[in-house]
Amino acid sequence: MTLALPNPLLRSRRRWAAIAAVALIGVFPRAEPPQPIAVKGDDFISAETTGILNIEGGECFSDPAYSPRSNDVVVVYKACEERADNESFGFVHVEDGPWDRPAVAALGWDGCGKDFARRWVSREQSGLDYFPILPTAETWADGDRDIMCVVYNPDGKITRNMVPLVH
């Protein structure tokens, strides 16, 4: 029986190939996987989402995310310049009456849409989009009749205050 010893030249080439691979990983960092684009409809955030009732008009905030500290899904105030996800740009007041989610949603889309068009003209010209944050049956029962209008950048984050003054 003949014992074959590894070729030292082959072993050296493998070692250099491994070193080169590690070096390339350091030079060319792995690309982050693309983040899923959130569909921001009238059910994306509600008045019951923790933190949303602390947001005032013109303030920016995060998309909802689970917080181990709160043990709940929350939105957090963020300065617009700190790459926020959303900015509140107005409110639509709904008249008192029985809770009717489809009717409240229609009022929210209509009212926020008119305010959006007054401020930014169109989605195409501004590169922005909007969605309403609705009361829920529970907050409606407690007297909540306000719909928050929110603007966001569908292609990324907000990096400054986006709400223009309306004359």
Rank of each mutant, 00 (worst) to 15 (best):
L3M: 11
P6T: 06
L9H: 05
L10E: 10
S12V: 01
A18L: 11
A23M: 11
L24T: 09
G26M: 09
V27E: 00
F28A: 10
P29Y: 01
A31H: 04
A31F: 06
P36N: 09
I37W: 00
I37R: 10
A38T: 08
K40E: 06
G41A: 12
D43G: 15
D43I: 10
S46E: 08
L53E: 14
I55R: 07
I55G: 05
E56M: 06
G58I: 07
E59N: 03
E59D: 04
F61M: 09
D63E: 14
Y66M: 08
Y66D: 10
S67K: 03
S67C: 11
V73Y: 10
V73A: 13
V74N: 14
V75C: 11
E82F: 05
R83C: 01
R83K: 14
D85M: 05
D85Q: 01
S88Q: 12
F91E: 10
V92F: 09
H93I: 03
E95V: 01
D96N: 11
W99F: 14
R101W: 04
A103C: 02
A105N: 07
A106E: 13
L107I: 01
W109Q: 07
G111F: 00
C112D: 09
D115L: 15
D115M: 15
D115Q: 10
D115S: 15
F116K: 07
A117Q: 07
R118H: 04
R119H: 01
R123K: 15
E124C: 02
E124Q: 15
E124V: 13
S126V: 02
Y130C: 00
F131S: 14
I133H: 00
I133D: 08
T136S: 06
D144V: 06
D144A: 13
R145G: 03
R145W: 00
V151T: 13
G156P: 01
K157C: 04
T159L: 09
N161R: 14
M162I: 11
V163K: 15
P164A: 14
V166L: 14
H167L: 10
